[in-house]
Amino acid sequence: MEIDKQTMKRISETSRIKLSEKEEETLTKDLNNILSFFSEIKKLELDKGEEYYIGRKKSKQRKDEPENRKEESEEIVKAFNSEEDRYLLAPKSL
């Protein structure tokens, strides 16, 4: 079994997804089945490099000029779940 209970706890913490006991059990089984289903890829003899680009090999750049998007920025602030003086309020880290 590639992913054990400990590993699952670690992954769910890193992903910031809180799992119930039952979900942890089901998902551990699912993930192990899926990885085993795809494990044949490890048999592939690969001498190629890693492919990162699909098309453009060079990044495109734009001019660093400010745009006036006041209306949009109002909408963005309106969507904050907690706001004060146009700042997003987030709970304390610890």
């Binding site: 699952m8 992954i11 769910s12 992903s15 910031r16 997804i17 809180k18 799992l19 979900e23 998902l27 699912d30 993930l31 899926i34 990885l35 987030a90 709970p91 304390k92 880290s93 610890l94």
Partner: peptide
């Protein structure tokens, strides 16, 4: 709750099972 609790609960309550599978993998 604190930052981790708030974010984790938002995600666990609002993502479906397949979405969770893919993120965890």
């Amino acid at each position: 709750g604190d930052l981790t609790e708030t974010v984790s609960s938002a995600r666990s309550e609002n993502f479906g099972l397949e979405v969770k599978r893919r993120i965890l993998l």
